[in-house]
Design a protein around this nucleic acid. Sequence first.
DNA 1: CTTCTATTTGAACATACGTTCAGATACTGT
DNA 2: ACAGTATCTGAACGTATGTTCAAATAGAAG
Lengths: 195, 195
Amino acid sequence: MARTQGSHSDITGPRIRKAALGLFARHGYAAVSMRQIAAEVGVQAGALYNYTPDKQSLLFHLMHEHMQELLSAYGELTQPENAFEALHQFVRFHIRFHLERPDEVFIAYMELRNLTPENFSEIEALRRKYEDALEAILRKGQGAALFDIADTKVATLAVIAMLNGVMTWYRAGGRLSLDEVEQNYWDMVRRSVSA
Amino acid sequence: MARTQGSHSDITGPRIRKAALGLFARHGYAAVSMRQIAAEVGVQAGALYNYTPDKQSLLFHLMHEHMQELLSAYGELTQPENAFEALHQFVRFHIRFHLERPDEVFIAYMELRNLTPENFSEIEALRRKYEDALEAILRKGQGAALFDIADTKVATLAVIAMLNGVMTWYRAGGRLSLDEVEQNYWDMVRRSVSA
DNA sequence: CTTCTATTTGAACATACGTTCAGATACTGT
DNA sequence: ACAGTATCTGAACGTATGTTCAAATAGAAG
């Protein structure tokens, strides 16, 4: 056999990335074989190499694309002048964006150690950019006496860590609606930094 | 060759667990081979099977031991009557205990998905116990009007997530002392739940 | 209908994996 | 000194891994 009926790179390509995303998220990069990914797509392992030079690149591109989307989606928001409102927007954006992409988020955090050093640096730089956006808000609010924060760097990481926690338990259709979850976290974040 | 000079299970056993702990934390369970663990101990792979029936049990026992120690260490503390002080004690305990065991903590969170379903349930139950201890404090403080919390379950997970964030960046000898870190996080946690 | 290109197969490669076990050596108690 | 036990080696097992590639078929273009 050889080329199969209906095969097209516009279809197979995305299907490979989607299958890899799901499998990496569920079982971890190291525990997933190229043959498993291929099987989920309905193709032989060799065919994957028309779409990625190797397994590492497949992981890297998934993570890179996710971080790019995160930054560009946040960048498209118009930043309120008021730091308080900017923080509120950040909290809402972060929760919503991340809850919409559980697999991507999971991978972007859990599989960092499976990146080659160069790839790791690149992803890390993007994550740093995002953190810096939050820190800028906290600094600004601190300057305007809206916030009372001992250490903005610590506060930045603490806020992001708290918000990321929502991923471990929230499921659509659960006890709380998304709006309620947002409200809950905003209440806590707001009070944790407010003057 | 066969038995080597100075070999003793009291020495080799702990060394195997220590090597496995470090390697699992650094590279991930699935990415670490029994031969790598053996090499770090200075032994052949077959020798490991005098100490563990298989790789899965090795992982499980590391996680189980960690969770048991966490619960027993926390259980030994005398609980203040005042919920405010109890929360303060929890925050200090959590930060200190976790920063002393970065590898164990990392594994206990990252490698959950590599446990068999039965092993997973057991570890999950222990983690739940720990979370319940914090939730009990929050409920109590809520009842005494010390706290103002919309949802104690969400607050419990949010506080733990925030505190866990410290593991991703704190290094001894860094910019902040452990006392300062504790103070920073306590300030934020306290305000996030206070009435 | 023919030619060219896109896409996949299927087999093969060298290497690595977790695990088992008989045999060999070191320690322990008498 | 000897017997019994604890510990490790080294080889082997079947299977799985990431990756490569010539050959084969499907679709697109003229």
